[in-house]
């Protein structure tokens, strides 16, 4: 027999527990978008919420919440990119990237079926809300102190769920033994360490960046289309010139890839101004 007192007690504690549980669940689920919503907008905006978030972060004098030690971003000027893939080559050579992998890959974007309109280099986006980090069963994907998505290649079990989760196709798997010994090359660790059976990708060469060196893709680009910089410092460099990120972004239209997926990528594309006429496909009947 359950006494009335006990029944009421149970009911009350269940109710309170429910409220507390719901509160934490709510915080857990919606915590991230709350932070963004209370920013003041410099101009009246209506409509697209997605655009609001993005424009505030960019148009304001970069009052980004200091969550990380540094906030590395890559800015890619699609107007300059001519699709030569020197960035890919430099990266592959410098890091001894295994066969079949392109940590920075050039996509040919056709905006209409007839014309190639521009090229789109795709490094790892270093998402702030990275799907790969979320799905990793062993925590081998993690954010380092700068918020860059790293892979612990000594912990990865090679399940490849992160490859399924990544919408950008930025992840690759080491299918075979490395062509040179898989020892840790301390100079370029972790990028140049390629043990078999784990997942790899671009890591923004974050170790190099923190030593004050630019990644090989940025240095290798002959069109100087790639900028690497720190959002907190509001400065980025393509190896030749150093620009103020806020100024660069206020002058040009910019976008991030698959903004609608909510991954918050760290790679910002400056939109191309015109299509690349030299590589227009011939009209097919």
């Amino acid at each position: 027999m359950v006494s009335r007192r006990r029944y009421i007690k149970t009911l009350i504690s269940l109710f309170l527990g429910g409220i507390i549980g719901y509160h934490y669940l709510y915080r857990f689920l919606l915590g991230k978008s709350k932070v963004v919503a209370d920013k003041k907008l410099p101009f009246p905006v209506s409509g697209d919420f997605k655009f609001e978030i993005f424009s505030t972060a960019m148009a304001q004098p970069l009052q980004v919440k200091r969550k990380w030690k540094r906030h590395w971003v890559m800015i890619i000027d699609l107007e300059r990119c001519d699709g030569c893939a020197l960035c890919t080559a430099s990266c592959n050579i410098e890091h001894g990237v295994p066969n079949g992998q392109t940590w920075i890959k050039i996509y040919v974007i056709k905006e209409t079926p007839l014309r190639v309109t521009y090229f789109l280099p795709r490094p790892c986006m270093q998402c702030e809300n990275a799907p790969c980090v979320k799905v990793c069963p062993v925590g081998a994907n993690y954010y380092n102190e700068d918020g860059v998505v790293m892979i612990d290649k000594d912990r990865c079990i090679g399940c490849r769920l992160c490859m399924a989760a990544c919408p950008y196709g930025a992840r690759y798997f080491n299918w075979e033994n490395p062509s040179f010994p898989a020892e840790r090359n301390e100079e370029h660790y972790p990028e140049s360490y390629h043990p078999r059976g784990v997942v790899e990708k671009c890591m923004f060469c974050v170790m190099e960046l923190n030593k004050g060196k630019l990644p090989p893709c940025v240095l290798g680009c002959k069109m100087r289309a790639l900028y690497m910089g720190d959002l907190y410092e509001d400065a980025a460099s393509n190896g030749v010139e150093t620009v103020k990120i806020s100024e660069l972004l206020s002058k040009r239209f910019s976008f991030r890839l698959f903004e609608e997926l909510g991954t918050e990528p760290r790679v910002i594309y400056l939109a191309p101004l015109k299509s690349k006429p030299s590589i227009t496909y011939p009209l097919k009947p």
Partner: peptide, 25 residues
């Protein structure tokens, strides 16, 4: 699942470092 893993010998990492957010866990 073990056949499919790139590193089957590390399967016990799921016990040591398991993350409850992961569908695989």
């Amino acid at each position: 699942v073990i056949f499919s893993l790139g590193r089957p010998e590390r399967i016990f990492n799921v016990l040591f470092y398991g993350r409850i957010e992961s569908p695989l866990l």
